Lab assay of single mutants.
Amino acid sequence: MQRVNMIMAESPGLITICLLGYLLSAECTVFLDHENANKILNRPKRYNSGKLEEFVQGNLERECMEEKCSFEEAREVFENTERTTEFWKQYVDGDQCESNPCLNGGSCKDDINSYECWCPFGFEGKNCELDVTCNIKNGRCEQFCKNSADNKVVCSCTEGYRLAENQKSCEPAVPFPCGRVSVSQTSKLTRAETVFPDVDYVNSTEAETILDNITQSTQSFNDFTRVVGGEDAKPGQFPWQVVLNGKVDAFCGGSIVNEKWIVTAAHCVETGVKITVVAGEHNIEETEHTEQKRNVIRIIPHHNYNAAINKYNHDIALLELDEPLVLNSYVTPICIADKEYTNIFLKFGSGYVSGWGRVFHKGRSALVLQYLRVPLVDRATCLRSTKFTIYNNMFCAGFHEGGRDSCQGDSGGPHVTEVEGTSFLTGIISWGEECAMKGKYGIYTKVSRYVNWIKEKTKLT
């Protein structure tokens, strides 16, 4: 034993070699072989497995989906700052455009905790909710729209109204504003409101030439003092309507412009014939205590009207009353817009006519005020429907199939267009061939041609 100890002390290297040989010859039971080890760690190889990531292109799944990435790591994937920024906006807080917040056709661009709407022409605001041009839906104005110097929408209202708090709607500024039905039992019968379409306001006024200088022999019209197929109006439903009495009662109609003036057809009036105007009328054979009678003290036909040349060209006249009318729910003026808007309103496509005229061709006159909704007829169809001249200051309205029309005794009465609950004068009943005849239409004086003249002559002093 002493000898062994001496050998170990003198030859430590020998001992180490012996131990190493023993270990190498022993069977290893701690580690699995290569094949079995792979069965336990069965993990798919990654895209760049075996390579240094710093030297390969980034992978979106590896960089940002398996674990949260930084902007720089995302930049490695896209290799483009702009594309990385677009991805980053949604990656950080989701897609803010998912709810489609942009209105009126706006395009949404996502941002971090926010979004941006790219608005089409005519709109602005956070969600493109603000109209900035009158060309689109009248700028959301209830009545009139004008573009300011910086191309912003400025709404306005006709006389007797003021802008509401929203700067879009119009509200009454006087007790009985024009064009409004205020009798409670008839307010439910107000005709369907007309909503502004998209309009090209630059070209809204037709490029028409008034044929002022045409000389033409007097034409022989049949029954051209021209509501057939209409309905009984309720008291106060058309408070701007008046009836004219002269040699015979209810020979023509008219509309209240203001307390002192009536507008009617020029062919209705004769110099030297006494005319009485009755406002607030409903049943011409009954006294309903809503009527107001006034005498006409002055007749002003349009300066281009000449019955000797043509009885229905420039067929418009103004009547001055001896005493002002007292405005109330049964006696209310009709609204008159400017030339541009009167023309736009007419193009809405349908209007209402009213009167006490004959209820059928050569038949009896109506006792109760009649009204009828009539569609506008395109000019080409209008011209083809008659052998008589249709001037540019006239328009056609009615039904091709016949059966409904204005008729004798309705002449001078109103053709009105309702705009968001307020009625505007767009025409004056003038003439036609018979009444409600198939293929024939009622012919009306186009008020847009005469609004400046009306307003100039009827100013209240």
Rank of each mutant, 00 (worst) to 15 (best):
Q2E: 13
R3T: 09
R3C: 14
N5K: 13
M6K: 14
A9N: 13
P12Q: 11
G13R: 07
L14K: 05
I15R: 11
I17N: 02
L20D: 02
Y22R: 04
Y22P: 03
L23I: 13
L23Q: 03
S25T: 12
E27D: 12
C28R: 03
C28W: 01
F31P: 03
F31T: 15
D33I: 10
N36D: 15
N38L: 11
I40T: 02
I40Q: 08
I40D: 02
L41D: 02
L41T: 04
N42V: 12
N42Q: 11
P44A: 14
K45A: 03
Y47E: 06
N48H: 01
N48F: 01
L52Q: 15
L52F: 10
E53W: 00
V56M: 06
V56E: 00
N59Q: 06
L60K: 04
K68D: 06
F71L: 06
E72F: 04
E73D: 01
E79H: 08
T85G: 09
E86K: 08
E86H: 06
W88Q: 03
Q90W: 08
D95W: 08
Q96F: 14
C97Q: 02
P101W: 04
C102H: 02
N104D: 03
G105E: 07
G106P: 03
S107Q: 11
C108I: 03
D110T: 12
D111E: 06
W118M: 14
F121A: 10
F121K: 13
G122R: 06
F123Y: 13
E124T: 11
K126F: 12
K126Y: 14
E129Q: 12
L130V: 13
L130R: 11
L130I: 13
D131Y: 14
D131P: 13
N135S: 14
N138I: 05
N138W: 08
F144T: 02
K146H: 07
N147S: 09
S148R: 07
N151I: 09
A164G: 10
Q167I: 05
Q167S: 14
A173W: 06
A173F: 09
P175D: 06
F176A: 05
C178D: 01
S182W: 09
S182G: 09
V183R: 10
S184H: 12
K188Y: 15
T190A: 14
T190Y: 09
R191P: 15
F196V: 14
Y201A: 13
V202Q: 15
E208K: 09
T218P: 15
N222G: 13
N222A: 15
D223Q: 11
F224K: 14
T225Y: 11
G229K: 14
G236C: 03
G236P: 05
Q237C: 04
F238N: 03
F238S: 04
Q241P: 01
V242N: 00
N245R: 13
G246N: 09
V248F: 09
A250K: 07
F251D: 04
C252T: 01
S255Q: 03
S255T: 14
V257F: 02
I262V: 14
I262A: 03
V263W: 01
T264R: 00
A266L: 02
A266W: 00
C268P: 00
C268Y: 01
V269G: 04
I275C: 04
N283S: 08
I284H: 07
N295H: 12
V296K: 01
I297H: 06
I297Y: 05
H303E: 09
A308Y: 10
A308K: 09
I309G: 08
K311V: 07
K311A: 08
Y312N: 07
N313M: 10
N313G: 06
L321N: 00
L321K: 00
V326C: 07
L327Q: 04
S329K: 12
Y330Q: 05
T332E: 03
I334H: 00
I336Q: 01
A337I: 01
K339V: 10
Y341E: 06
K347G: 12
F348E: 14
G355R: 15
W356F: 11
H361T: 14
H361V: 12
R364T: 14
A366S: 06
L369G: 07
Q370P: 03
L372K: 13
L372Q: 14
P375M: 11
D378A: 09
R379T: 15
C382D: 01
L383T: 15
L383Q: 15
L383R: 12
S385T: 12
K387I: 05
T389W: 09
I390Q: 08
Y391Q: 15
C396G: 01
A397W: 02
E401T: 12
R404L: 15
D405G: 13
G409I: 10
G409E: 06
G409Y: 11
D410F: 13
S411N: 13
G413M: 11
V416P: 00
G421K: 09
T422L: 05
S423E: 03
L425R: 00
I428P: 01
C435E: 04
K440V: 05
K440C: 12
G442K: 08
K446D: 09
S448N: 05
R449F: 15
Y450K: 02
V451Q: 04
E456T: 11
T458M: 04
K459H: 10
K459A: 08
K459Q: 15
T461A: 15
